[in-house]
Simulated assay, not measured.
Amino acid sequence: MAATEREVLLGLQRALSEEQFQTFKYLLEEQLPLSRLQAASRPELCSMLLQHFPGRALHVAAAVLRRLPRHDLILQYHLPGADGAAADPGEVARVGSREAVGPRDVVGGPPDAGGRAQDTTTDPSGCGAGRLLSERDLLRVAQLLGHEWQEVGVLCLGLQRCRLEQIRENNPHRAALCSFEMLREWRRREGAAATAHRLRDCLRPAQLDPEVFALLQQL
């Protein structure tokens, strides 16, 4: 018996790690009521998708999964585009048209043989001070950086202005999402050194909201 649309959506959400689930919700912020979205559980998010995207919920879910990226789930659940057909460009645009990211940009690291994200957010020594920043950490920091994110990227993080311009063009009028993509770019460059302590040191010369440094102190 074929699974219903609701069952497929719930299976998808349960297959995501907690951080991937939070990123999934983040990518839907411009399409769903933010007050309900932020506190939504996995079953509640499924209901919201069915309610707001009648007949298109699986297309929307597939577009978001491509951004994570969790292509293994698209194939496993036979979502739109799983057979190699082109994804609905309208759905892809609505969840954010950004540069594709590699497997190492998945929350928690590259997937294992079963498609599950491996936990690479802590260093092998288990020392809290050396914990790598996760996607959820980056999201929290990005939401505090404000509209001066490009100056921060060039002057504090040492990123190329042309790359930041590309991020801005891909995410017009979405400062928090631009900041998030900028921090991901920095994390890719830093690799194993992308810790809260390292980011705090990089941002120290900038005149930022004190909450940014307070948050990084806690991470």
Rank of each mutant, 00 (worst) to 15 (best):
D88K: 09
R200G: 07
R56V: 03
L73Q: 11
P205C: 12
L177I: 12
Y26P: 11
D209H: 09
P111F: 01
A214F: 07
A85G: 07
P124E: 02
L164H: 07
G102V: 09
R161A: 15
A57H: 06
L208S: 12
A3S: 01
L32W: 12
D112N: 08
A175P: 05
E181H: 13
R168I: 13
C156E: 08
C202M: 08
S35N: 14
Q166R: 06
H71M: 11
F180K: 02
E181A: 15
L155I: 11
V106G: 05
A40H: 08
V8C: 07
R163A: 14
R104W: 07
F53E: 05
R174F: 14
V106M: 04
S125W: 02
L177W: 10
S47I: 02
L164T: 03
L144D: 01
Q31F: 04
A206P: 02
R67T: 11
N171A: 14
R131A: 14
Q31H: 09
A117T: 04
E185G: 06
G191K: 00
W149V: 03
L139F: 04
L132R: 05
G158Y: 04
F24D: 02
T23Q: 04
R168Y: 15
L132K: 03
P210M: 05
A194R: 00
R56A: 14
L16P: 10
Y77V: 10
C127N: 15
T121G: 04
R66P: 01
F24Q: 02
E30M: 14
P205K: 10
V92A: 13
E29P: 10
A2H: 06
H78Y: 11
E151L: 11
A39Q: 14
Q217V: 14
V152D: 10
L203S: 01
E148T: 14
L138N: 08
L157H: 01
